[in-house]
Design a protein around this nucleic acid. Structure first.
Length: 278
DNA sequence: AGTTAAACCTGGTTGC
DNA sequence: TGCAACCAGGTTTAAC
């Protein structure tokens, strides 16, 4: 599910309510992608700090009080099917509720049917294990230092298809399968085009398209294909205005010709052969 | 070194 | 209706 807009929607939903909350208990369900790294009980007594996002990861600081407490935080990832809910009166955990953080301001609950998500303890965002997971991430899409020049220079160093590179997150983080397809459509670029064949003007157009696509999705509360909801249980609305994603055989949003589906790097790519050029 | 497959899981949909 | 095959918002790890 969750690409940058969904993760950011989630962050905004939990940041203010949880800030300053005291951790009362924690519970683990079935194993997620990686082990938590501490016993749930060791989190008790810490205070939640400002929630940050880096790429599709969330960082939840847990500040210690007293030397006998752990100081650090939790690095969370929603994987393909994860979502977080903030519950005032949580029902008994269901089959896919795999992590609860019970606080004085409500219970933060991770639901993740496929369990590709993760909750990992780390002493700091800049220390292992969090730093190891974050180290390979490219620049944030709204980072002002990510200029056309820098983006184009990074493109020139890669020979992979642009769609694959966008998914990889080394050029820029945040665009997953939906938004990579949509941004390439918006920029009029064929998903199979090699990165190093993209001219500087087209690179500028693509970077702008990535930014516009992600911010539009953010405004609409993200996309909900199946699992994703915000922390209040609300679905996103972006999927309804996708021009190409999941529209194989349907009319292109611009020229009305049939949208094509192909597979790149084991993922479906949707595109318009008329509107998107090599 | 740079790219591409395999792996991790569950569940919904499609097709025989 | 039953069952197999395929598909799904991701990303690390292993293998060409």
């Amino acid at each position: 599910m969750p690409e940058l807009p969904e993760v950011e929607v989630t962050r905004r939903g939990i940041d203010a309510p949880l800030r300053g909350a005291r951790v009362l208990s924690a519970r683990l369900g079935k194993p997620l992608r990686w082990p938590l790294g501490v016993l749930p009980g060791e989190l008790v007594g810490t205070t939640v700090g400002p929630v940050l996002r880096r790429g599709k990861y969330l960082w939840l600081p847990l500040v210690a009080h007293g030397a006998d407490r752990l100081d650090g935080g939790l690095l969370l990832h929603l994987g393909m099917s994860g979502s977080l809910a903030l519950l005032a009166a949580p029902p008994l955990p269901g089959a896919h509720d795999h992590f609860d953080l019970v606080t004085s301001s409500g219970t933060l609950r991770l639901n993740d049917p496929r369990r590709f998500g993760a909750v990992v303890w780390s002493p700091a965002m800049t220390a292992a294990p969090a730093a190891k997971l974050l180290q390979r991430l490219g620049p944030e899409p709204f980072d002002p230092t990510l200029t056309t020049q820098r983006f184009h220079a990074a493109l020139q160093q890669r020979r992979t298809p642009i769609k694959t590179a966008l998914l990889g997150g080394e050029l820029v983080v945040g665009a997953g399968n939906i938004y990579a397809c949509e941004a390439l459509f918006q920029a009029g670029i064929h998903p199979g085009l090699r990165c190093d064949r993209i001219s500087r003007p087209r690179a500028a157009r693509l970077l702008a398209a990535v930014r516009e696509t992600l911010s539009r999705a953010l405004d609409l509360g993200g996309s909900t294909l199946r699992d994703f909801t915000d922390v209040h249980g609300a679905s996103g609305a972006f999927q309804a205005e996708a021009a190409v994603y999941d529209r194989a055989g349907l009319a292109c949003g611009r020229c009305r010709s049939a949208v094509r589906r192909m597979v790149q790097a084991q993922r479906s790519t949707y595109f318009c052969v008329v509107c998107q050029k090599r």
